[in-house]
């Protein structure tokens, strides 16, 4: 059994497997299926300062090897989380991380300040990349200036581990990652969903109420791998890789391309036990290849030989 522990900033994870925000509820929804304590961490759904009803139905379209969603950050707000969900999560021996979303810098900061007070929440993931909200969201993650502005502001208000979730809907993700690093992020996670669209030719209507939505699932993995590799070559802070990971082999590919940890997202819908299977699969791979420590394969992609 190889050593699976990894670090992101000062925060230690028992293994590199986490869950992607918006695909894992508050974690407790999976308690029937897996032992949540076996996860390196789990990232609970996008949380905003105030309650959000999200977008109208329909919010989902299945596409080959993936899906589009247009949920639009439906959540009951940070105060609801603190009063009703946090007490249920305090007892888990895993890093519970809140995905913080917002429409304005002030919202992000106010939510992050509240998260800072929660003893058992050792990190937040700052979502500057949601493609499904009208204002804010992805807008912060598509220019270096705005990314730097929001990360700097949150950095001042939040003194624990700060992960910044990046949008792939940009021309140069490495420069955005560098802006986040410069502004004080401890880590970047990527990729959020890719902006996409689905149409019903018979009815001549879009399949989503918002017309466009965020694409995820197996189909996006090559794009995600490419972006992780580009960002790995551009920043010094650890990377959390996600996008289309469906099994342990996919997860290992992300580690080889430079991710220190991975998140499983859409795969949770198809196999709610996939996270623990990926932990076991990474361990099996390390043993089979004679590695003693998962850190040995991070960024170990062999080029030109």
């Amino acid at each position: 059994m190889a050593k699976l522990n990894i670090n992101i900033g000062n925060l230690e994870f028992k293994n590199p497997v986490m869950t992607a925000s918006g695909t894992f509820g508050y974690g407790v929804e999976f308690a029937d299926f897996i032992d949540l304590n076996r996860l390196g961490g789990f990232i609970v759904k996008g949380t905003t300062l105030h309650h959000r009803e999200g977008n109208p139905y329909p919010r989902m379209a299945e596409v080959p090897m993936g899906m589009l969603n247009a949920v639009g950050l439906q959540n009951k707000g940070i105060d609801y989380f603190i009063d009703n969900i946090y007490p249920q999560l305090k007892g888990y021996d895993s890093n519970v991380i809140i995905n913080v979303s917002g429409s304005t810098i002030e919202d992000y900061v106010a939510t992050a300040e509240k998260c800072n007070e929660l003893d058992k929440i050792p990190a937040i993931e700052l979502n500057i990349s949601c493609p499904n909200v009208k204002e804010g969201g992805m807008a912060f993650g598509t220019s270096c200036q705005s990314a730097e502005a929001v990360v700097s502001a949150v950095r001042k208000a939040y003194n624990k581990t700060l992960i910044v979730k990046l949008s792939p809907n940009v021309s140069d993700i490495a420069s955005i990652a560098k802006a986040a690093e410069f502004a004080g992020a401890d880590s970047v996670s990527l990729i959020n969903t890719l902006l996409g669209m689905a149409v019903n030719a018979e009815t001549q209507k879009p399949l989503l109420s918002t017309i466009t939505g965020g694409m995820s699932g197996a189909a996006v993995k090559p794009i995600a791998l490419r972006m992780v590799w580009q960002v790995y070559n551009a920043v010094k802070i650890p990377i959390v890789g996600l996008g289309g990971i469906m099994n342990a082999t996919d997860a290992i590919e992300f580690l080889l391309c430079g991710a220190t940890a991975v998140q499983l997202g859409t795969a949770n819908f198809i196999d709610p036990q996939i996270t623990v299977k990926v932990v076991d699969g990474i361990n099996e791979y390390l043993d089979r290849h004679g590695y003693k420590d998962v850190n040995e394969i991070i960024g170990a992609l062999k080029i030109n030989n």
């Binding site: 139905y57 919010r59 819908f269």
Partner: peptide, 20 residues
Amino acid sequence: KMACGFGVCLCCVENTKEGH
């Protein structure tokens, strides 16, 4: 239309008198 079936993807919402 739903993606997960157990309340985490939030795709299959119906707008009710108590919200989505």
